[in-house]
């Protein structure tokens, strides 16, 4: 069952339309990625989902309850991890968590237990007594996530949680998100890093200029656009014969012979690999490597919007 259902969200700032008819659902145990360039409307969409911003149209329902600026109680089901590190730098992680925990209505032993659990989840249990300003960038980001987990929300909303983070912390954050998803949380993850969306998210919505231009699994998205994978076969021997044989494999549209390799253009490169090896055997050439360049989300974005994901 869907934890988050948002439908036809609209938001205008003056005469600029920031969000224009965005709608999607996220089930429990699912990580949904909202992928889009700067200014696409990710944060604005999230603000409406977290009940921070009144929408100009559309609806947000979390765990069966409508969410909005005036729907105070329903906010208890949403955990919000803002794009910036929104913690008091002069307080320790624990003190910050105690502060926000109380705003979520937690007190006493329950609060202490939840602070420990949240710090544990992000791997900061032994450093929780230190002031936020003494943390590294990655630790700050992790503490930022912990503050969104305190009250055991049903929906966790992460707004670009890995911006400005070293690879090690980034991996730690990924692991945390995967664990939380596997524990049954619905996760909404926004990013403008294609690799993150591909690696982490079960489904991806591509957002551009306030519109959700495509949605689905990586594979579904790739299938939506008429692009071809590139398979580069580096070989010794008769490349012309290899090219001719490869062209007979179903799904291969084109075979280009170049200096030292043959490159195939095909619909689903991954499915071809065995047949390519067989063709090489039949052609009597020695394959030294096969490289598969799959159509990625970058290409999908380019095709759908006519622009590159990163400017």
């Amino acid at each position: 069952m869907a934890v988050l259902v948002c439908t036809d969200l609209h938001k205008r700032f003056g005469n600029r339309t920031a969000v224009d008819g965005v709608g999607f659902e996220i089930a429990g145990g699912e990580c949904y990625g909202l992928l889009g360039p700067n200014g696409a409307g990710k944060t604005t969409t999230i603000s409406m989902i977290c009940g921070l911003l009144a929408s100009d149209g559309g609806s947000v329902v979390v765990a069966g309850r409508p969410v909005g600026p005036r729907a105070i109680a329903a906010k208890a089901d949403v955990g919000y991890v803002p794009q910036e590190v929104a913690l008091y730098p002069d307080l320790s992680a624990r003190e910050n968590l105690a502060f926000f925990g109380r705003l979520y209505g937690l007190t006493g032993k329950e609060l202490d237990a939840r602070i420990d659990a949240s710090l544990e989840t992000v791997g900061l249990l032994d450093r929780g007594g230190e002031r936020i300003e003494q943390y590294s960038g990655g630790m700050k980001r992790r503490a930022n996530i912990a503050a969104g987990l305190l009250h055991q929300p049903k929906l966790l909303v992460l707004d670009e949680p890995t911006v400005g983070v070293d690879p090690q912390s980034r991996n730690a954050i990924f692991d945390t998100v995967v664990d939380l998803r596997d524990a049954g949380l619905a996760v909404l993850y926004t990013t403008h890093y294609m690799e993150e969306a591909e690696r982490l998210c079960d489904r991806i919505g591509i957002i551009d200029q306030g519109r959700l231009v495509a949605e689905g699994t990586r594979r579904e998205l790739v299938a939506q656009v008429s692009g071809l994978d590139h398979v580069r076969i580096t070989v010794e021997g008769d490349r012309q014969t290899l090219a001719a044989r490869c062209l007979t494999i179903p799904g291969v549209d084109e075979a280009v012979v170049a200096d030292g390799f043959v490159e195939l253009r095909a619909h689903d490169g991954r499915q071809l690999l065995r047949q390519v090896v067989e063709a090489a055997d039949a052609a009597g050439v020695e394959v030294s490597s096969i490289e598969l360049v799959e159509l990625d989300l970058e290409a999908v974005f380019l095709q759908l919007t006519g622009r590159a994901l990163r400017d």
Binding site: L52, A73, K75, V78, Y104, H151
Partner: peptide, 14 residues
């Protein structure tokens, strides 16, 4: 500026 106000608003606090 820190976004703390925003985060406070995301909690069930009017």
């Amino acid at each position: 500026e820190l976004g703390v106000t925003r985060r406070m608003l995301a909690t069930p606090t009017p």
